[in-house]
Design a protein around this nucleic acid. Structure first.
Lengths: 328, 328
DNA sequence: CTGAAAGCGCTTACAG
DNA sequence: CTGAAAGCGCTTACAG
């Protein structure tokens, strides 16, 4: 079965293909009677314009690219879901790129650009500096989603990670806790680095010694590391840069007979679905991930409409703390 | 900055654009000297052919579509990751469609087809019958990934859910358990329906009464339901069609003072990342989700190469049981 | 082995 | 308000 083309619709409707095209793209330019007739036939035949041809001719593809570092993190999936939801409303389709090979960042980026998208949502938080120059020369708008470049030349949507780590640390200090450990990732993700910064700031202000534990991010290895750590450390509070790390730590502690939250309080940083499946349920900084994705798409849509180079802005989303059972 | 076109490369290399195109698509047809010169310039300029133009001219887009019902389920994300990994190797790019609006299935499908992809990976397991007819008329190959149509006319990759539910149920019966409850989803996903079938078969064979609990899939509501259920039920074993449901049930039970695994054993059906973050760690049927995604892409690539209509095959992947701490 | 030319299925100034 | 025509950036028979 051959796909229906615009010529077929034009033929059936007794108009030129230019008119069919106009019905689709500038309906107000077509007389009502004609328009309705064409629309009826389009519906009857289930016609959908070929995306490639449309993209080539109009130089717009109504497609955006999402570039993610991986799909295994729950936070990323939830963000994509938020983006998709918003994209659908605006009529955009999504191309998905997973940038898990840091050797080929540049190559990947070129591919993203060549894929003829109208805009790019960039969610990678561990990139080498050189990539940012390449990104700066991208002919379509780019929005950083819950990620940041070291120099602030790109538009972004995210939360203020430093402030949020600072706030929660300070709160826990004010509640009388002194030994507060921060678990972060071994790899340096800008996002997590920023959290560490906020944590350290709060600790220093209170004249407390920051205690940072770097994990690989692989569950089995993390657990062994935490078990080792608990042999000669007894933190009052553990903050995990990711929920999964916080939960792993909590599970290890509970198994060692440490009472959560009485003897140890644990807090996560993302409020993914994991947080509600842990036992006890994890207290979290709730970074409204779905909403971030949603708003990022709204922002990108704005940039794609304005052909002018409007100054990129950084949207900071509010976060909140969800107190659950892993804290007193 | 304007994107580099094939003309620019042809100009710089002193050849026609046909030659540049050949270097990219049929390198063996170009003299070595010419080829290398062109390749060098392509690299220097960072040229990537425009995907729309290429797709339009060649009627191949080296893009595939993935159609998923949602992104919030860990199993789906992991599958996409598997697909992406494989797709990258074959040089395919991904278009992502989320088909969460059952009202508009047909509309969505038309959009998928019009998006000019070379093949489609279909991962939705809750569709109305009418959609299958539409899918049958798709001009490009479609592979069902861990999903099935009621009539078996499409190629697929997945596991034998019925057998796997049957096997685990039987094993637990042989170990002396009698009160085995199966938690499934309220919505009828073909996949989960099949699991129920296998479970029921094993129970009937052993002259035991099947006990099925249908959950909504929303954590809070599930928990309330499980708490209620445990008031007057004390199963020996609970099988959860999804890990998240198994874990929720386990958490509720533990909170009520029921000892896992001594008084209650819990088994999940997917072995997602959740399983290792639960406490105790969840025993699971390990459906090798990543691998399923991977193989599905391999199969699709095969179908896209052969232009002939080869008979669609159903690939059944082996599963195994990962015994962890939620069972004796 | 290479180039000139047609064509992929659309969109959009340009006339009328 | 509508149609004829050029053009988007490629690929691929067809000649040579």
């Amino acid at each position: 079965m051959n796909q229906i083309k615009i010529y077929d619709i034009a033929g059936s409707a007794g108009v030129s293909l230019a008119t069919v095209s106009r019905v689709l793209n500038h309906p107000e330019k077509v007389k009502k009677v004609t328009r309705e007739k064409v629309l009826r036939i389009i519906k009857e035949k289930g016609y959908k314009p070929n995306a490639n041809a449309r993209g080539l001719a109009s130089r717009k593809s109504t497609t955006i690219a999402i570039v993610v570092p991986t799909l295994t993190r729950a936070s990323i999936s939830e963000m994509i879901q938020g983006i998709e939801n918003s994209a659908k409303k605006f009529g955009y389709t999504i191309r998905l790129f997973v940038n898990d090979d840091l050797e080929n960042e540049q190559e990947t980026w070129r591919e993203v650009v060549a894929s003829s998208v109208d805009g790019i949502l960039f969610m990678c938080d561990e990139m080498s500096d050189s990539i940012y120059e390449l990104i700066a020369f991208t002919p379509v708008p780019v929005v950083f989603v819950n990620a940041q470049s070291k120099n602030q030349t790109f538009g972004s949507v995210g939360i203020d990670n430093e402030k949020c780590a600072y706030d929660i640390t300070k709160q826990m200090i004010e509640k009388g806790n002194k030994k507060i450990t921060f678990i972060t990732t071994k790899h340096t993700y800008t996002v997590n680095e920023t959290k560490v910064k906020g944590y350290e700031k709060a600790m220093h202000e209170a004249d407390l010694e920051p205690e940072i534990l770097e994990s690989v991010g692989v569950i089995e290895e993390n657990e062994a590391q935490y078990r080792e750590y608990l042999k000669d450390h007894r933190p009052d509070v553990v903050l995990g840069a990711r929920d999964s790390m916080a939960i792993s730590f909590m599970n290890v502690a509970v198994k060692l007979g440490i009472k959560v939250p009485d003897e140890l309080q644990v807090i996560g940083f993302q409020n993914t679905r994991y947080a509600q499946l842990s036992n006890p349920k994890l207290t979290c900084i709730d970074t409204p991930i779905y909403e971030i994705g949603n708003l990022a798409m709204v922002k990108l849509t704005g940039l794609m409409k304005e052909n002018v180079d409007i100054k990129p802005t950084n949207t900071v989303i509010d976060y909140q703390i969800i107190w659950r059972d892993s804290t007193k």
